[in-house]
C-alpha cells in the first residue's frame, strides 16, 4: 500500500448505457423516473443491533448501510479537557459491490468518514461537554462504525443519515469512578444528549450535462461530470466537500441554496422515521 492518491480507473459502463443516461437527464428526467432534485425512497430501522449502544440501518433506494455506536472511556484531548470525542469510521466490505476487494478502508471510505465526522461535529448536534466524565482525565469516546452492505451510489448521504440516526438512539453505559479509575457499567444506561433540531445531514449533488441532480445512483455517479457534498444543519452549511470534476461559481451558489431548501424536507423525513418507536431487529 502506498500513501499516494492516484487517478481512479473509470468504472466500465457500456457506451450506450452512458449515452442514454445522459440523454434522459438532458430531457429533464432521470433513468429511474425521479425528478432531478428528488431523493430515492428512504427507510430507516432504528436500534436493530442489541450489541451496540445505538444503531441504525438506512436504505436509500438500493444503497444499504448499517451504523453502530460503541462507547469507551478515554483521556480528553489537551485542548478540550472538558469534552468527549467522536470517531467515525466507514468500511466498504467486499459484499457491498462486485468492484470492492477486501482490505483496509481506501481513500474514498476515509474521505466519507471524515466528511460525516465534520458534518456532525460542526452542527452542534452533540453536546461534547456532556461527554466529559472527569475534566482533563476521563471522557466518553463515541465510536461510530458504518458498514456499507449494498453500494448503489450516494453512500455518503446514507452514511450520514445512519450515523445521526444511530447517535439519536444511543444510550451511554454509565461511568463510575472506582479507586481513581473510570469504568463503564454496561447494563446501566443513560441517554446521549442530542439536539434533534440541529440534525446534521449531507446532500450530494452531481452535475450531468449542465443539470444538477441529488442523491445519485451508482450509474449516475459514474456518468457524472462533477460531484459535491454539502453538510447542512438547521439552515446552516456545516461542511462542503467537492470531489470529482469542476463547478462554476453560479453552480455553487445554486447548489448551496438548493441544499438548504432540500434539507428541511429531508430532516422531516429522517426525524419521522427515527421517532416512530417500534420493535426493531436486523433486517435488510
Amino acid at each position: 500500500m502506498s500513501n499516494l492518491s492516484i487517478t481512479q480507473q473509470p468504472e466500465i459502463l457500456p457506451q450506450l448505457r452512458r449515452e442514454s443516461i445522459r440523454r434522459i437527464v438532458e430531457q429533464g428526467q432521470r433513468a429511474d423516473g425521479r425528478a432531478h432534485l428528488e431523493f430515492r425512497n428512504i427507510d430507516i430501522i432504528v436500534n436493530p443491533v442489541k450489541t451496540a449502544d445505538g444503531s441504525a440501518i438506512v436504505k436509500l433506494g438500493n444503497t444499504v448501510v448499517i451504523a453502530g455506536v460503541k462507547t469507551s472511556i478515554g483521556v480528553p484531548y489537551p485542548d478540550t479537557p472538558d469534552e468527549g470525542a467522536l470517531i467515525v469510521n466507514l468500511e466498504t466490505p467486499p459484499l457491498a459491490s462486485p468492484e470492492i476487494e477486501p482490505g483496509p478502508p481506501d481513500e474514498n471510505a476515509i474521505e466519507i468518514a471524515r466528511v460525516v465526522d465534520r458534518t456532525i461535529r460542526h452542527s452542534g448536534f452533540i453536546d461534547f461537554k456532556s461527554l466529559c466524565i472527569v475534566p482533563g482525565k476521563y471522557a466518553y469516546i463515541l465510536w461510530v462504525d458504518i458498514y456499507v452492505l449494498n453500494h448503489d451510489g450516494n453512500v455518503i448521504d446514507a452514511a450520514c443519515m445512519a450515523a445521526v440516526s444511530a447517535l439519536s438512539a444511543t444510550k451511554l453505559p454509565k461511568a463510575i469512578i472506582e479507586q481513581d479509575q473510570a469504568k463503564l457499567i454496561r447494563d446501566e444506561k443513560i441517554e446521549l444528549k442530542v439536539d434533534k433540531s440541529k440534525l446534521p445531514l449531507t446532500i450530494t449533488f452531481i452535475k450531468v450535462c449542465n443539470s444538477l441532480l441529488v442523491d445519485p445512483t451508482l450509474e449516475e455517479e459514474n456518468v457524472s461530470d462533477a460531484k459535491i457534498t454539502i453538510g447542512v444543519s438547521e439552515g446552516k452549511i456545516v461542511s462542503i466537500q467537492k470531489t470529482t470534476g469542476a463547478f462554476d461559481r453560479d453552480d455553487i451558489v445554486s447548489i448551496i441554496s438548493k441544499s438548504v431548501e432540500l434539507y428541511s424536507k429531508l430532516r422531516d423525513v429522517v426525524l419521522s422515521k427515527i421517532s416512530s418507536e417500534s420493535y426493531s431487529y436486523i433486517r435488510i
Binding site: 443491533v49 450489541t51 444503531s55 448499517i66 453502530g68 469510521n89 467486499p94 465510536w143 462504525d145 454496561r186
Partner: peptide, 18 residues
Amino acid sequence: VRYHMAPFSTPDERKRPE
C-alpha cells in the same frame, strides 16, 4: 471466503475492524 465481525457486533468493548 472472508468471515468478518462488525465492530459493534460484540457486547462490551468495540471490536477493532481489522
